[in-house]
């Protein structure tokens, strides 16, 4: 075998190695925790299969001709240079495939936008560099707090060993009940931020002066982590989002505790300034 084919083989082996490593591990979508996240996941898997099929057809043909139609094996060049039929076929087929891909996506887009009749509405406000949450409506109405990175600075500087949830932990989690439709309104205090929790399949920019919204319904209790995903200055990498999903009764308990705590401190409604 020539050194070139050894190289090519090595290359494909590495590619195959790290794809398989990734698919079977933490390096893929986090497990979907909501209907939208599930639909997104399914559509991505379908898209990957379609890409793989096209890839095999196109590069199968290309590598076949690279192997067989080379001068070094004595292949003589043909002289054709167009074929209307073939060209129409390979314009039409991709078009049909794309339409097939767009169809389910359209349904999901419409579903994502349906933020009506939420059980609970929470406002998430991006600050440089933390999140503020206000429970506007539903069970827990009136609760309001800030949520800041809680990883100690010593860990960032490498003076302490890094904990399990390094950079993905906050002092106050956003708490929501399981199975309820949660609507999150996003806005920002200073610059753009974006509120993202991958497990729920939601991401929405937070824009100063304007509100936007998103919704999710968590399938099961647990703690789900995300981060700010719109560059917002120096500490953009240090404003994670942690959503804690609780059973209804636990949630009620949490609300009661929060209310008690805030009654003690004078409640200042508008967190801003």
């Amino acid at each position: 075998m020539s050194s070139k084919s050894v190289m090519a083989l090595l290359g494909s082996a590495i590619l195959a190695f790290y794809s398989s490593m990734a698919f079977s591990s933490k390096y893929f979508h986090p497990e979907p925790q909501s209907v939208i996240a599930q639909e997104t996941y399914d559509q991505h898997i379908t898209a990957l299969w379609i890409c793989l099929a096209i890839f095999i057809v196109v590069f199968g043909a290309m590598f076949y001709s690279i192997l067989k139609h080379r001068k070094s094996v004595g292949h003589k060049a043909a002289n054709f240079h167009h074929s209307t039929v073939v060209e129409i076929i390979w314009t039409a087929i991709p078009l049909l495939i794309l339409i097939a891909m767009a169809f389910p996506a359209t349904r999901t887009v419409v579903a994502m936008k349906d933020t009506s009749q939420p059980d609970i509405t929470i406002k998430a406000t991006g600050y440089q560099w933390m999140w503020g949450y206000d429970y506007l409506q539903g069970e827990g109405e009136g609760i309001s707090f800030f949520s800041k990175l809680s990883t100690p600075v010593a860990q960032l500087e490498g003076k302490e060993t890094k904990g399990e949830n390094y950079l993905l932990e906050v002092d106050n989690n956003v708490v929501v009940p399981v199975g309820k439709k949660i609507r999150v309104i996003t806005t920002a205090n200073d610059v753009l931020h974006a509120w993202w929790v991958p497990a729920f399949g939601v991401k929405q920019d937070a824009i100063p002066g304007f509100i936007r919204d998103l919704w999710f319904t968590a399938n099961k209790p647990g703690i789900f982590r995300g981060q700010c995903v719109e560059l917002c200055g120096k500490d953009h990498g240090y404003m994670p989002i942690v959503v804690e999903v609780m059973e209804a009764d636990k949630y009620a308990q949490w609300v009661a505790e929060k209310k008690k705590a805030s009654a003690a401190v004078m409640n200042t409604a508008a967190v801003g300034n």
Binding site: V58, H69, E87, T91, P94, M101, A102
Partner: peptide, 30 residues
């Protein structure tokens, strides 16, 4: 914007197919 973007894949695909067809039954050197 989703549909318009997906549409761009069509002429781009045409290019890739054309390159492949150019190599097909050529007399290639590398």
């Amino acid at each position: 914007f989703m549909y318009a973007t997906m549409l761009i894949a069509v002429p781009t695909g045409v290019k890739v197919f054309n390159w492949t067809a150019t190599m097909w039954r050529g007399s290639m050197t590398f």
